[in-house]
C-alpha cells in the first residue's frame, strides 16, 4: 500500500520537468523513508538521483518497498494537466499517487486547493524497467562550489552557443568556466562572494585542492532544467570522478546529477 499526498504538487511537476529529457523511463522506489529514483541517460554518461523524504509529504504511507516503473514523459504529461486550467490555481494542486493492487497502473489524483469541487483523476500505466543501479560511494571532493542556480544556468547556456564542452576549474582565484569553439573562446570566472543581501545570492567556494575537469555542455544544460527547484546549485568536483550537480528541494530532499568527465586520449 502506498499513499502519498503532496500539497505542493507543483514541486513534483518541476522535478519531472528537470529529468524527463535526460531519462525516458525510470523506476520510482518507494519505502517508508521516502520516494527515490536513480536512472542513467541512454548513453550511460549521466545519472540522476532523486530523493523526496517522507517527512516532506503532507501524508505518506508505504507499507512495503515497491518499485514503480514509469515513462517520465507520460508522467510529465499527466502532471501538466494539473496546471493547465487558469481558473483553478495551477501551481498548488494536491496530489495523491496510489498504485492499484496489481501495481500495473498508478492512479494520480489531483485536487485543486482553491476549487475543491473539482477533482481530476488520471490513471497511468506502469512499466517493467530493467534498470541498472550504480553504487555511488561517499567521496571527498577536491572542491565544492555553491552558487546561484540561475547564474550557473546562464553560464552553461551562454557557453554552449560558443563550444560543446566546458572546462570547470577551481583555483584560489575562483571558479572558471571555459569553452572553445570555431568562432573563438569564452571564459567566465566567478569569485567567492559572501557579501550579498540574500544568502542564496552568495558564491561560496570550498577548495581542498585545485581541480580542472572537462564536461559536455549538452548534459550541463540539461541539468539546469532543475533551476526552478532551488535558488542555489552545488557543484562538487574531484579529479577523475564524475561531477555532482545538486539542487536541493527545500526540506524534502534533492535532485543530483552525476556526469562523467571527458578524458584526454
Amino acid at each position: 500500500m502506498l499513499e502519498l499526498r503532496l500539497v505542493q504538487g507543483s514541486l513534483l511537476k518541476k522535478v519531472l520537468e528537470s529529468i524527463k529529457d535526460l531519462v525516458n523511463d525510470a523506476n520510482f522506489d518507494c519505502s517508508a523513508t521516502g520516494f527515490s529514483l536513480q536512472a542513467m541517460d541512454s548513453s550511460h554518461v549521466a545519472l540522476v538521483a532523486l530523493l523526496l523524504r517522507s517527512e516532506g509529504f503532507e501524508h505518506y504511507r508505504c507499507d512495503r518497498n515497491m518499485s514503480m516503473g514509469m515513462n517520465l514523459n507520460n508522467m510529465a504529461k499527466m502532471l501538466k494537466c494539473a496546471g493547465n486550467d487558469d481558473i483553478i490555481t495551477p501551481s498548488r494542486p494536491m496530489m495523491a499517487v496510489t498504485p492499484s493492487p496489481s501495481c500495473s497502473k498508478v492512479q494520480v489524483r489531483f485536487t485543486c486547493c482553491f476549487a475543491q469541487d473539482k477533482i481530476a483523476d488520471f490513471e497511468m500505466k506502469l512499466m517493467d524497467i530493467d534498470s541498472e543501479h550504480l553504487g555511488i560511494p561517499e567521496a571527498e571532493y577536491h572542491a565544492i562550489v555553491r552558487m546561484p542556480s540561475s547564474e550557473f544556468s546562464r553560464i552553461c547556456k551562454d557557453l554552449s552557443s560558443i563550444g560543446d564542452t566546458v572546462v570547470i576549474s577551481v583555483t584560489k582565484e575562483g571558479v572558471r568556466f571555459s569553452t572553445r569553439g570555431d568562432i573563438g573562446t569564452a571564459n567566465v570566472v566567478c569569485r567567492q562572494n559572501t557579501t550579498v543581501d540574500k544568502p542564496e545570492e552568495a558564491t561560496i567556494i570550498e577548495m581542498n585542492e585545485p581541480v580542472s575537469l572537462t564536461f559536455a555542455l549538452r548534459y550541463m544544460n540539461s541539468f539546469t532544467k532543475a533551476t526552478p527547484l532551488s535558488n542555489t546549485v552545488t557543484i562538487s568536483l574531484s579529479s577523475e570522478l564524475p561531477v555532482v550537480v545538486e539542487y536541493k528541494i527545500a526540506e524534502m530532499g534533492y535532485v543530483r546529477f552525476y556526469l562523467a568527465p571527458k578524458i584526454e586520449d
Binding site: V45, A46, E132, L134, I136, L241, P242, A260, I263, E264
Partner: peptide
Amino acid sequence: AQNQPKLSAFFSLR
C-alpha cells in the same frame, strides 16, 4: 582528442 567515458568507469554496478 577527448574521450567520453561511461559512468561505469567510475562507479560499480550494484
